[in-house]
Simulated assay, not measured.
Amino acid sequence: MKNLARCSLLVFLCLFGLNLSAQEETELEAEHERHEEHRHKNVISLGIGHAHINSGVENGEKQWLVLPSWMLDYNFWFTEKWAIGLHSDMIIETFEVEDEHSSESVIERENPIALVGALSFQPIEWLSLVAGGGVEYEANESFGLFRLGVEPHWEIHEKWEIFVNIGHDIKFDAYNTWNLSLGIGRGF
């Protein structure tokens, strides 16, 4: 009789545990669906920051330049973790950089604009990793570029988020740029 009572208790506890486990899974699925409904497919972001250039030239001497910049990005989230977008940056000053092919000459850049096709991956809810390629346009000469970036972001309202963008542009046959920006994005 004791064995029957123990077996009954064991079966009851197992079934109760399975029920709790199923309930937890249902709650997690519902939370995931709420997050998916809340997630906006389209996000436009505007940021202000600084471009850091280690091969700048000022008064004929090599200098580390820190120049003001603006960024405007569009992302389309086609899954919960992946987005494709068009990212743009503009350095709002005229500056000179060392010519990579000749240490005696410089390249003058006047308000260059970078346009980048980017792929974003979100490994965790508040962080995006960005990679892409594009072109930095300028009146005298344009350069191809490859971009890598990290973008932590925090939701401040149902449709709004703030973010920090840390990016590295590797320009082909030219100078490289580190970008640090702070911005706001709106989903729709």
Rank of each mutant, 00 (worst) to 15 (best):
I44E: 14
S120A: 02
G60Y: 04
G117V: 15
E125M: 12
A139V: 12
A22E: 13
S181N: 02
L67V: 03
F121L: 14
G149P: 00
R186F: 03
D73S: 15
L4Q: 04
I91N: 03
I166Y: 04
V150Y: 05
F78M: 04
E161Q: 14
G133T: 01
L28M: 11
G187M: 08
N59W: 09
D173N: 13
E151V: 06
I156M: 00
F76K: 08
H101I: 07
V130W: 07
S102M: 13
L46Q: 11
E36A: 06
L72F: 11
C14R: 08
G85S: 03
H40S: 09
E125C: 06
S8D: 11
S142E: 11
E161F: 02
E138F: 09
M90A: 12
W178R: 00
E136S: 00
N42V: 10
G56D: 00
A30W: 10
P112Q: 15
L9C: 14
G144Y: 11
G144H: 12
M71G: 14
L180Q: 05
E138R: 07
G117H: 08
E141H: 07
G183K: 08
A131M: 08
F76Q: 04
T79A: 05
G132A: 13
G47E: 10
C14E: 10
S103H: 08
G47N: 09
L145A: 11
S88P: 03
E37N: 14
S88D: 04
L4Y: 05
E138W: 05
E155P: 01
N42T: 12
L28G: 05
N111W: 15
L20T: 09
I162Q: 02
D89P: 02
S128D: 14
L72Q: 10
F188E: 02
V164W: 01
A22C: 14
H38C: 01
L127G: 01
H153P: 12
H157I: 04
T79Q: 12
L115S: 10
L15W: 15
W160G: 09
E108I: 13
I91M: 14
L115M: 11
L9E: 15
C7D: 08
